[in-house]
Design a protein around this nucleic acid. Structure first.
Lengths: 211, 211
DNA sequence: ACTAAACTTGCTTGCCGCTAACAAGTTTAT
DNA sequence: ATAAACTTGTTAGCGGCAAGCAAGTTTAGT
């Protein structure tokens, strides 16, 4: 209590335990993202991650329990950024406008945080693997995104920008599926233009939902 | 040369060297598919694969050079089945009819060879990982599939089943992307109905390309 | 109020079972 | 006999665990 007045975050002196801990987790999460980009899941060893973050080989296990635990943290931290970006762009928009804005928000996200997106993608796709322990996290995230999109559709039908005989949940599946599929192809085949694919999909979407 | 007349595949006696070799590769490929379903990429160890196939821990390395080599073989063997199925179903069809038939062919493929499809999917998605050595194979396969779909579109425009102002390559990207995205979501969230998603996409496709 | 002991938490190191890959063997076909 | 198929020995590196060390925080005695 008495000595807390002298704390200075800018200087490296006298960190609080909680600060040290949080800093270590953040550094290791970032190191993990970096190494996932450079070397992939198998190549991103706990030793490399710990040392890249400026610590020892054992700290990641200590903080996150396991390699999967660390990756769960990475997944969570990236998806938080994405949800934030999405809310910022879409705001109070609804219907077709929200669907299209969501699309360009996603494009901006991919362009703005390419390393984060790639790491998320790697983990995401790796989650299908029965040996990975974060499949439920991904599944739940997807379910949430479908729900958001379905609500946009419902509101669009109420507002008149989307024709009424579309089942919102079905269109949401297609919408999310297209995004996944486009991103996927783009990651696999660098020659493709992600922007063009998104624009093309948007134009299809407009035709599709026209009342 | 002289003794080849007495070969009996049903009995285990006196196999030719080429036969032994081919049999071993086939058994190990199948064992790999099985183990990819049960335990994923990391869990499908060369030891487990070799022993499940009835051999020693070292034979897979001997035949395929590396774990990645074995997985390349799995990928190839499954994609051969898929291409065969596709050709069988689509035959000489063109245009919208070919696109829709391709869709149901894929659905039947998923239903008919679930373990093969799942293994392919796991490897496929794992190929995005910088550490995996079979990304080019997947990229080339995708490119080929896009080309096939684009030709269907072109022919459909010539035949009148698809409106002319669509760029074939773009629609092919969307088509393949949707298939990837639907399959992906279905694998991640078992509650979804793949059949319904495919039917839904088909109906969208029909609206989209109507001249 | 000050300080030193007691305690908690962050972090490192040594170890174990396991893996992929290679090299050197043994068995089997030709 | 010779070459191929196949097995076994070996090595470096992995993830995860447990023991131990170091730094931060609380508490008690003066």
């Amino acid at each position: 209590m008495a000595a807390t007045a002298a704390i200075e975050v800018s200087t490296d002196r006298r960190r609080t335990q909680a600060e040290r801990s949080a800093l270590a987790e953040q550094r290791m999460t970032e190191a993990a993202i970096e190494l996932l980009n450079e070397r992939g899941i198998a190549g991103a060893t706990l030793k490399a991650i710990g040392e890249k973050a400026g610590y020892s080989r054992g700290l990641a296990t200590h903080h996150f329990g396991s390699k999967a635990g660390l990756f769960r943290k990475v997944l969570k931290s990236v998806s938080v950024i994405w949800v934030d970006q999405l809310n910022r762009h879409v705001g109070e928009k609804t219907g077709l406008e929200a669907l299209c804005t969501g699309l360009t928000a996603h494009y901006r996200f991919v362009r703005g945080y390419p390393r984060h997106v790639f790491a998320m993608q790697v983990l995401w796709l790796g989650s299908l693997d029965p040996g990975s322990d974060f499949k439920p996290n991904v599944a739940e995230f997807l379910r949430g995104q479908r729900k958001v999109a379905a609500r946009w559709v419902e509101e669009g039908q109420a507002g008149g920008s989307i024709r009424g005989d579309i089942e919102p949940a079905r269109l949401a599946e297609q919408y999310l599926g297209s995004i996944i599929g486009m991103l996927n192809q783009w990651q696999m085949s660098p020659g493709l233009s992600l922007k063009r694919m998104y624009q093309e999909y948007e134009s299809y979407l407009r035709i599709l939902v026209k009342p």
